[in-house]
Structures are given as structure tokens and as C-alpha cells.
């Protein structure tokens, strides 16, 4: 297939944006519905990525593709899910500050583990040896197909989140986020619901980490910094934490605009990309976050149901 028309930067940029949309959608179930502010997104994503990478690279696989990838990705996802179960169990009954510290602490622990366990992860030097579970020709063709597969995975996550919103389970999560003692008094096992939610969302984050590892073909600790968490949180809050499409729209107009349009298509001096742009990106994201929270706390999409209701109540 001739892919000359396709810019390689666009493929990797789109891959990053779609992956952050996936993370923001999973975060939406935690933060938007159950009001669990998970600031350790990168920890679950990173532990999934490294667990996948270690198994994929270190094992002398007796089977051909795609089995090494499938088994390793499932392993990464399960490890992330079990981590989510443990962290969820620890933070489920804590207040907002406790959840913030607990999840951030987990992300930091994952980073330290990846840095210090050099025999397994390669430490700060990183770990190579990852590859696509297929070969359809050029690097660009392989990457493009991987992007398509990621879009399918994220579309499935979007479909699932959409279903959750309409299901009794979604109402239960909203009820827990809104008033947990009341939900408990109505016969809802809120603690159990919260830790399983955490485990499931973390497993999804771990799977996205595994897919990112394949796209990069090289794992390094610089990949698992706070910027991944920030990108997902800023995108979600910008779009609207309470809306299914909030994560998609918010990430598209924050990470999408910055990481694709600015980084790939604006004629900026080359040395800006390594130094000024990453700092500027976080500064702009922080400013956007403050402006949105001040002037449109429900995000760009807001809570349309409530907006519509308020308009009808005022006869507009």
C-alpha cells in the first residue's frame, strides 16, 4: 500500500492523541461518574507497559506472532488491573486528599521501580526489542495499521463508557460519587463497587500502555512522567468530566491541537521542540485548566442535560 501521502509525524501524533483519549475515557468513569480523582493514571499505564515489555522481550517464545504480543498484553493488563485492585482497596475510603496522595504515590513508585530494576527494565537506559506482532512492509505501514488497531480499541472503550452511562451500573457510580453514605444506606456495596471499578479502569490503562510500548519499540522511564496523567486530566476537564464525549472533545482540542498542529505543522525554530515546547505545553495546559475551572467548570460540553433543563425552566 502506498502511504507516501501520510506524514509519519501525523501517524505518531494521532496515536498519542487517540491513546490519551482512551485514558481520559477510562478516567471519566472514575472521576466523572464515581468522583474518584485518580492522579496516578501514568502509573497504571506505565506498569501495564513495562509488564508487557518485560514479558514480551525476556521470554523465549515458542509460538509465532501474534501470540507473544497477545499473551504479554494480557499479562500487562492483568498486572495493571491487580495494581488497580490494590490501590483501589487502599484509597476507597479515603477523602480527596488521600486519593490524590495515594494515586500520585503509586505512579511515583512505578517510576522508581522502572528506574531501579535495571535487570528487568533496563532502568534509565531503557529497554529495546519490542516490535509489532506483524509485518506488512514499511515501518510507516506497520505504524499506520497499529494506529488503526488502537482506534478500534479506543472506540470499544468509548462504546463501553456510553453503555455504562445508560446502564444501572452508571447510575450507581454517579450515586456513589454524589453521596456515598446515602448509596450505602440504599443497599449498595459502595466499597466493592469502587475497587472493582478501579481495577477494571486500570486494566484498560495497562492495555493502552502495552500498545504504546509497541508503537515506541523502546521503553524508557522518561515515558512514564506526569505529563501523561496531566494530558488525560486536562483533556477530560476541558471537555467536561460528566459527559461521555467530553474526554474525546477535550483531548482533541488540547493534546490534539498542541501535539499535532503546533508540534508538527507550525514553522517553529527546531531547538524549541526539545526545550521550550514541552515546558510551554505544560504551562498552557495548566492555564487552560484554571480558565476552564473558573469560567466553565462543567467543561466545554458541560452537562447538557442540566443545561437543557435549566433553559426549559427559564422558558428560553
Amino acid at each position: 500500500m502506498n502511504l507516501d501521502w501520510l506524514d509519519a509525524f501525523l501517524v505518531s501524533g494521532l496515536f498519542f492523541v487517540v491513546m490519551i483519549i482512551g485514558l481520559a475515557l477510562l478516567l471519566h468513569i472514575q472521576l466523572g461518574l464515581a468522583r474518584i480523582a485518580n492522579f496516578g493514571v501514568v502509573g497504571f499505564w506505565g506498569i501495564g507497559m513495562y509488564s508487557f515489555g518485560v514479558l514480551f522481550v525476556k521470554v523465549d517464545w515458542p509460538f509465532g506472532d501474534p501470540w507473544p504480543f497477545l499473551i504479554s498484553a494480557a499479562f500487562g493488563s492483568v498486572v495493571a488491573g491487580l495494581s488497580g485492585l490494590l490501590v483501589g482497596w487502599l484509597i476507597a475510603d479515603l477523602d480527596e486528599d488521600g486519593v490524590l496522595v495515594g494515586t500520585l504515590g503509586f505512579a511515583t513508585a512505578v517510576w522508581i521501580l522502572a528506574t531501579t530494576e535495571q535487570d528487568l527494565t533496563g532502568g534509565a537506559l531503557g529497554m529495546g526489542g519490542l516490535r509489532f506482532p506483524y509485518d506488512i512492509g514499511t515501518v510507516k505501514a506497520n505504524e499506520t495499521l497499529w494506529l488503526v488497531l488502537l482506534i478500534i480499541v479506543v472506540a470499544l472503550i468509548l462504546y463501553y463508557v456510553h453503555r455504562v452511562h445508560r446502564a444501572p451500573y452508571g447510575r450507581l457510580l454517579t450515586a456513589i460519587g454524589d453521596n456515598e453514605p446515602l448509596a450505602r444506606s440504599l443497599g449498595k456495596a459502595t466499597f466493592r463497587t469502587k475497587i472493582w471499578l478501579f481495577a477494571f479502569a486500570s486494566a484498560g490503562m495497562g492495555l493502552l500502555g502495552a500498545m504504546y510500548g509497541v508503537m515506541e519499540r523502546f521503553l524508557e522511564t522518561a515515558n512514564i512522567g506526569i505529563d501523561i496523567t496531566l494530558a488525560a486530566i486536562v483533556g477530560l476537564i476541558l471537555g467536561g468530566t460528566a459527559r461521555v464525549w467530553g474526554a474525546v472533545i477535550g483531548v482533541a482540542i488540547s493534546v490534539g491541537v498542541f501535539d499535532i498542529l503546533v508540534q508538527s505543522y507550525l514553522p517553529l525554530p527546531r531547538d524549541w521542540y526539545s526545550q521550550a515546547i514541552p515546558v510551554l505545553r505544560e504551562a498552557i495546559f495548566g492555564a487552560v485548566l484554571i480558565i476552564v475551572l473558573l469560567f466553565r467548570p462543567l467543561g466545554v460540553l458541560g452537562d447538557m442535560r442540566r443545561d437543557k433543563l435549566m433553559r426549559s425552566m427559564h422558558g428560553d
Binding site: 447510575r171 454517579t174 450515586a175 460519587g177 454524589d178 453521596n179 453514605p181 446515602l182 448509596a183 450505602r184 444506606s185 440504599l186 443497599g187 449498595k188 456495596a189 459502595t190 460528566a242 452537562d303 442535560r305
Partner: peptide
Amino acid sequence: PPYETAGRGIGYVPQEKGVFAELTVLE
């Protein structure tokens, strides 16, 4: 735990914060 007593037939209506503010009446 309260979720098990509720299942056995004890209903509770608190004095304050008795509704899930973000859900509709039907929900």
C-alpha cells in the same frame, strides 16, 4: 454493613442530602 441491612428490608431516609443531586427524579 448497611448494604446488607438494606437488603433485609430496612429503608432509611436521611434528614439532609437525601437525594442524588446529579441524577433525575426517575434515576
